[in-house]
Amino acid sequence: MIRPMLLAASLLLMAAPAPSDAADLKRSIFGKTIDGRDVEAITLTNPSGMSATILTYGATLQALMVPDPAGKLADVVLGYDDVAGYEKSANYFGASVGRYANRIAKGRFELDGRSYQLALNDNGAASLHGGQAGFDKKIWSVARVTEGPSASVEMTYVSPDGEEGYPGTLTTTVTYTLDDQNGLAIDYRATSDRPTIVNLTHHALFNMAGHSAAQSALDNVLQLAASRYLPVDEHLIPTGALSPVEGGVFDFLAPTVIGARVRDGAEPQLVVGRGYDHSFVLDGAAGALRLAARLSDPSSGRTLEFWSDQPGLQLYSGNFIDGTTVGKQGHVYRQGDGVALEPQRFPDAPNQKHLGSAVLRPGQVYSNSILLRASPMSRSRE
């Protein structure tokens, strides 16, 4: 069940009065790929000043300006100032990842009696985030833009049959919608002409103090509506167990500083993951949009809620960011400078049936709905 503290806070946010002005949308050329293709940037802005910039490269959230309670804005997602940064990066900053987000053990799965082999792009042990050139490395097409009380952009990508080893032609859309109450919805939909497997998600890395703040994202406070998590083996593949979090280092049922326990060497799971790189089982019924997490920066009061209709949420504490990455405004990103909260189906589900089906068949529609809701400005301080 969702904890009362989470639910009460969300109701207060949703009850806040909405500004009367409409959100707006601007389009521009962000840059060119190494082979000369244009990459477009679409910026959605609401009357509070909150804005989201989305690139056609990887359907990527390049920037997310979020206000604190006094209205001071900060860009809270890690990223790059140019296309080359995203082309060279293996960090998936802000990207839409697929066809299958997360890991598939040995890059193999069976579907309807046939075996499929995917690229082993994760230390030779697994297929990760769709393979060598997943959806994060594709240029998506802008299908539709809208303005009004909410501003939105819909992007599409058609993945041909056999791409990265996956069967079926998969037609995928993602719609980013920014409303006038500081909510950014990210909605994925997909259909296929053959049976296939699908697990799409959004891979932004957040620091609610700001992507270039002196404070690490490990100083952020996290609360999860998740009573169980999936332990992993030495290759970060779920062992098959669903373990209770209560009382241990994976217990975020109450608001907890992420870095408080991340270096606890007595916990083998943190050693093997180099920190948190684990899937949590969200409380409540999958298929219904429900509050999954709250991430906040104590110094500014800047807070973001994560709503999801998925069964799981991957927590990744930026363990493999090694200080060699120069991001936006020339800022060097180091381990723990960003935290990912990725609503999705479970890793390796195609090979572990008790984790639920990831199969999409012709005539069915895959969906993953995510809502990021920032705290509204305090009306007494505007």
Rank of each mutant, 00 (worst) to 15 (best):
7 L>V: 05
9 A>V: 04
9 A>I: 08
10 S>Q: 14
12 L>N: 11
13 L>Y: 08
16 A>T: 11
17 P>R: 10
19 P>R: 09
22 A>F: 08
34 I>T: 14
36 G>Q: 09
37 R>C: 10
41 A>F: 01
42 I>L: 12
51 S>H: 06
53 T>E: 09
54 I>P: 12
56 T>A: 14
63 A>G: 06
63 A>E: 11
65 M>H: 14
67 P>Y: 14
68 D>N: 10
75 D>G: 09
77 V>C: 07
78 L>A: 07
79 G>P: 01
80 Y>H: 15
81 D>Q: 08
86 Y>P: 01
86 Y>S: 01
89 S>L: 13
97 V>I: 15
100 Y>A: 11
101 A>T: 09
115 S>D: 02
122 D>E: 11
125 A>L: 07
125 A>S: 10
130 G>H: 05
136 D>N: 15
138 K>G: 00
139 I>E: 04
141 S>A: 11
144 R>I: 02
145 V>K: 04
148 G>P: 11
148 G>T: 12
151 A>P: 05
151 A>L: 03
156 T>S: 01
157 Y>W: 03
158 V>P: 01
158 V>E: 00
159 S>C: 13
165 G>W: 05
165 G>L: 07
170 L>S: 09
174 V>K: 06
180 D>A: 13
180 D>L: 03
184 L>D: 09
189 R>C: 01
190 A>W: 02
193 D>F: 04
196 T>M: 01
199 N>H: 07
201 T>A: 07
203 H>M: 11
210 G>A: 10
212 S>A: 13
213 A>W: 02
216 S>W: 03
218 L>E: 09
219 D>A: 15
219 D>G: 12
219 D>F: 01
220 N>A: 08
222 L>R: 02
229 Y>K: 03
229 Y>L: 07
234 E>I: 14
234 E>P: 00
235 H>L: 00
242 L>S: 11
245 V>K: 03
246 E>P: 09
247 G>Q: 08
248 G>V: 00
249 V>W: 00
251 D>P: 13
253 L>P: 06
255 P>K: 02
256 T>Q: 09
257 V>Y: 00
258 I>G: 15
261 R>K: 12
263 R>V: 06
267 E>W: 00
276 Y>D: 02
277 D>F: 06
279 S>E: 07
280 F>I: 03
282 L>Y: 01
283 D>L: 08
283 D>K: 14
289 L>Q: 04
297 D>P: 05
300 S>Y: 02
300 S>A: 05
301 G>W: 12
306 F>E: 07
309 D>M: 08
311 P>T: 10
315 L>K: 06
315 L>E: 10
318 G>N: 07
318 G>H: 02
323 G>P: 03
326 V>Y: 01
329 Q>V: 10
330 G>N: 06
343 P>F: 02
345 R>C: 01
349 A>E: 05
351 N>T: 11
357 S>T: 11
359 V>W: 05
360 L>D: 01
361 R>E: 02
362 P>C: 04
363 G>Q: 00
369 S>N: 12
370 I>Y: 04
375 S>A: 15
377 M>Y: 00
377 M>Q: 13
377 M>L: 14
380 S>F: 11
381 R>D: 07
